[in-house]
Simulated scan of single mutants.
Amino acid sequence: MSAPSVSTPSSPSSSGGQQQARTRVLTGITTTGTPHLGNYVGAIKPAIEASLDPNVQSFYFLADLHALIKCQDARRVQESRLEIAATWLALGLDTDNAIFYRQSDIPEIPELTWLMSCVCAKGLMNRAHAYKAAVAENEEAGNQDPDKGITMGLFGYPVLMAADILMFNANRVPVGRDQIQHIEMARDMAGRFNHLYKGDFFTLPEAVVDERVQVLNGLDGRKMSKSYNNTIPLFVGEKKLLKLVRKIKTNSLEPGEPKDPDTCTLFQIYSAFASEEETQAMRDEYAAGIGWGDAKNRVFEYLNEQLREPRERYQALLEDPGHIEQILLRGAEKAREQAAPLMDRLRVAAGLGRFV
């Protein structure tokens, strides 16, 4: 899941009181890595801007249960949870308006995952992109068992994602195109549950793909991704930042030769942070033949200045994990105020309610 967008108001079945009139947008951040510039531009920045909108009820969560699917390194998961929480807070997430929590702090979510598992057709999971890709890799490798190395976590991942969304009856879920299938699966499970138990329990969520959200390239010109080991960490120190910017791949054009900014990773990164006027000025410099060394120094200086204050806030937050913990616990409390009543209602619907 990525950055949020604005949509239509929540349905009456999704919550009570005044929040019925607020759009619900939900975004999860998987805790398996250190946030980088691409994460900031593609997800964090637009999400934080949306968190300031009083007409939107935003849910942002650390998807630490999802992290266990890919990573069994407990130390890495723990470090990533802290780093990602500190990143969002350092960059100005409004935790008074938005609900910011750890997935693992909401026990209703795994309970809802089981309820959804009991109405979800296995054939639907067989068609999940991640599962099909893993099976294809086994077949290409000549493994006799097509499910070799595939865990139930990977196979049932879309059910957990559906529970994340349906737990709070999110109207819209901002995602990349590769995640649209999971939203469609969540709709299928929600509709199936509503039908089987004859009630309007769940809002059918909609996927939001914002084509305006920029995808940054990394050091080697491919999409910036920890999978490619080509990222620039968001809050890396000045010396390391300079070293990484200087490693960004460019062509062999000499100083004085005009350069094409539209095919240049260096320019793309700069323009993702700069204003329209600053971007145009840099475009003019490219046309005039700026040397790659000068261009890289300019990009470093600009990024370093833009990130200086949030980097300082980030480091201060990392040194005070107790403060982060309290923010997340308050967020979990607010989240559970909405999750627990819905879960009580679902238990009754499924025949699991109390006797008195």
Rank of each mutant, 00 (worst) to 15 (best):
P4S: 15
T8R: 15
S10V: 12
P12R: 12
S13F: 09
S15V: 07
G16V: 13
Q18Y: 08
A21D: 09
R24Y: 04
V25D: 06
T27K: 04
T27H: 06
G28D: 07
G38I: 05
N39I: 05
Y40G: 04
Y40N: 00
V41E: 04
G42R: 04
A43Q: 09
I48F: 12
A50L: 07
L52W: 01
N55F: 02
S58T: 08
S58V: 06
F61L: 03
A63D: 05
L65N: 00
H66E: 12
K70N: 10
K70T: 09
C71K: 06
Q72P: 02
Q72V: 01
D73P: 10
V77R: 03
Q78T: 03
R81H: 06
T87V: 02
W88L: 15
L89H: 01
L93Q: 00
D96Y: 06
I99H: 02
Y101V: 03
Y101I: 07
Y101G: 01
Q103F: 10
E108D: 14
I109N: 02
L112A: 11
S117I: 01
C118N: 15
A121K: 11
A121C: 08
K122W: 10
R127E: 02
K132I: 04
A133L: 04
A133C: 03
V135R: 11
A136N: 10
A136L: 12
A136K: 14
E137K: 08
E139V: 14
E140W: 03
D145T: 06
P146M: 14
P146V: 14
D147Q: 15
T151V: 09
M152F: 15
F155D: 10
F155V: 05
L160C: 08
M161E: 06
A163R: 08
F168E: 02
I183G: 03
E184I: 03
A190I: 07
N194Q: 15
L196I: 13
L196T: 10
Y197A: 09
F202T: 08
L204A: 14
D210Q: 06
E211A: 13
V213F: 10
V213E: 05
V213T: 13
Q214N: 10
L216K: 00
G218M: 06
G218H: 00
G218I: 01
L219N: 07
L219F: 05
D220P: 04
S225G: 03
S227R: 11
I232K: 05
L234D: 00
L234I: 02
F235Y: 07
G237F: 05
L244E: 07
R246W: 02
R246H: 13
K249S: 05
T250I: 03
T250N: 00
T250Y: 00
E257Q: 08
P258A: 09
D260N: 14
F267M: 08
Y270W: 03
S271E: 11
S271A: 13
A274H: 04
S275M: 10
E285S: 08
E285K: 13
G291Q: 07
G291D: 11
W292I: 00
K296E: 08
R298N: 07
E301I: 01
Q306I: 11
E312C: 01
R313S: 02
L317I: 02
L317F: 01
E319M: 05
D320V: 02
D320R: 05
G322F: 09
G322E: 15
I324A: 06
Q326V: 07
L328D: 01
L329Y: 12
G331L: 12
A332C: 09
A332L: 11
Q338A: 10
Q338E: 14
P341G: 14
D344H: 13
R345I: 03
R345V: 10
R347E: 09
G351C: 12
L352T: 10
